[in-house]
Amino acid sequence: KRYRAVYDYSAADEDEVSFQDGDTIVNVQQIDDGWMYGTVERTGDTGMLPANYVEAI
C-alpha cells in the first residue's frame, strides 16, 4: 500500500521515521490503531510512523 504524508513528522524515537508533508510512504503495514510501518520513498528511511499523519493514495 502507498500513503501520502499530510503533515510533517519528526521521529521521536530511533525506530520511527521522519517525513514531510507530501512525501510518499511505501510498503506500509498497519501495526495497531495508531501506528504503521513503512518506507519514506524520498529518503529511503524505514520505520514506524503515526497513522493519523498519512492518507491512502
Rank of each mutant, 00 (worst) to 15 (best):
A11M: 04
M36H: 05
T24Q: 08
R4T: 08
R2Q: 09
D45M: 13
G34M: 15
E14K: 12
A51T: 09
P50L: 06
Y9F: 07
W35P: 04
R42K: 08
T39M: 08
A12N: 13
G47F: 00
D15L: 13
S10D: 13
G47V: 01
D45P: 00
I25S: 02
N27Q: 09
T43N: 06
G34E: 15
Y3V: 08
Q30M: 13
D13E: 12
D13A: 14
V17S: 02
N52F: 11
A51P: 05
A56S: 11
P50R: 10
Y3E: 03
R2M: 10
D8E: 09
D13M: 13
D45E: 14
N52G: 12
D23V: 02
Q30Y: 14
G38Q: 02
N52I: 13
I57C: 10
R2E: 08
N52A: 14
R2G: 05
F19D: 00
S18I: 01
A12K: 14
V26T: 10
A5S: 05
E41S: 07
G38T: 00
D32Q: 11
S10T: 15
G44H: 05
G22E: 03
E41T: 07
R4C: 09
E41R: 04
W35D: 03
Q29A: 10
D45K: 14
K1V: 12
L49T: 01
S10Y: 13
T24Y: 15
A56I: 14
T43H: 02
G22T: 05
I57W: 10
I31K: 09
E14H: 11
G22F: 04
S18Y: 02
T24H: 11
L49W: 04
A5L: 00
E14F: 11
N27E: 09
D32T: 13
E41C: 12
Y37E: 06
I57Q: 07
E14L: 10
A5T: 05
Q20W: 10
F19N: 00
Y7I: 12
T39Q: 09
V40A: 02
T46V: 09
Y53R: 09
Q20K: 14
M36A: 06
D32F: 12
P50Y: 04
D32V: 12
L49P: 02
I25E: 00
E16W: 06
G38W: 00
Q29W: 13
R4N: 05
A12R: 14
Y3K: 03
A12P: 05
Y9C: 04
D33R: 08
E14Q: 12
D21L: 15
Q30F: 15
N27M: 12
A51M: 11
E55L: 09
A5K: 02
D32W: 10
I57V: 10
S18D: 06
